[in-house]
Write a protein that binds this DNA or RNA. Structure first.
Length: 212
DNA sequence: GCCCAGGGGGCTC
DNA sequence: GAGCCCCATGGG
């Protein structure tokens, strides 16, 4: 298994090179992006984030103070804007209630405790929380998404009925606990899916095999 | 016009 | 615990 995972990584890395995720200027922007990108194309998220930046809202305090309705209006391009405004609000409320609004304090918490706490925030599921921990918190936590599942099962590395936790364990038990490796690996899987695996429902002859 | 996107919650059975 | 529905915009 270890070898399979390394082979896949080397193959994709060779084709695409380092991805340098997450594309954002601050940790808070990463968190906002992680929530906004839920089931949404990144190009739409960029527009929403640009609106927030223009309105000087890419900081916990200002996001906490803004009215939900106006927030929803600003993030409209990212879709699900009412729900996502609610989710951004519930995150900053959590941040203030639990850590006095300090991301520094939040990220100095033990990673497993923090993971449980964040999963308790309404609107933050496993993928969103793990993205936050990995890319904003620089913790070695592997992010599993639909692409990861699809690619691994197409390449017969896993069966297609595996759940989030077991896939995450697969990576974390078989690879060194390295934040930058996990970050690149996940980003490369997304890149790969976007480039070639997209819209091929069940393809055992996926072109990816050629690069492995 | 149709399909999907870097999900998650709530409901039903 | 699996299976469904809802949320919603924009690009291909």
């Amino acid at each position: 298994m270890r070898k399979k995972l390394y082979r896949l990584y080397r193959g994709i890395y060779k084709s695409f090179g380092p991805q340098h995720w997450w594309p954002a200027r601050t940790r808070f922007e990463i968190i906002v992006g992680a929530i906004l990108t839920q089931n949404t194309a990144w190009t739409n998220v960029e527009k929403a984030i640009a609106n927030l930046a223009k309105a000087k809202l890419l900081a916990p305090r200002s996001l906490k103070d803004i009215k939900k309705k106006r927030l929803a209006c600003l993030i409209k391009p990212s879709g699900y804007y009412n729900i996502k405004a609610e989710r951004l609000k519930s995150f900053v409320n959590f941040l203030y209630k639990r850590y006095g609004g300090s991301l520094k304090k939040m990220f100095s918490q033990d990673v497993q405790n923090l993971r449980e706490e964040l999963l308790g925030v309404k609107g933050l599921g496993k993928e969103t929380v793990d993205s936050i921990l990995l890319y904003a918190g620089k913790r070695p936590i592997f992010v599993v998404d639909a692409y990861t599942k699809r690619i691994l099962s197409r390449h017969n590395i896993i069966s297609d009925d595996k759940d989030y936790d077991s896939i995450q364990r697969l990576f974390m038990d078989n690879l060194p606990s390295d934040q930058s490796l996990f970050g690149e690996y996940h980003a490369l899987l997304v890149r790969l899916a976007k480039d070639i695996c997209k819209k091929i429902p069940k393809c055992n002859l996926c072109p990816v095999k050629k690069i492995l």
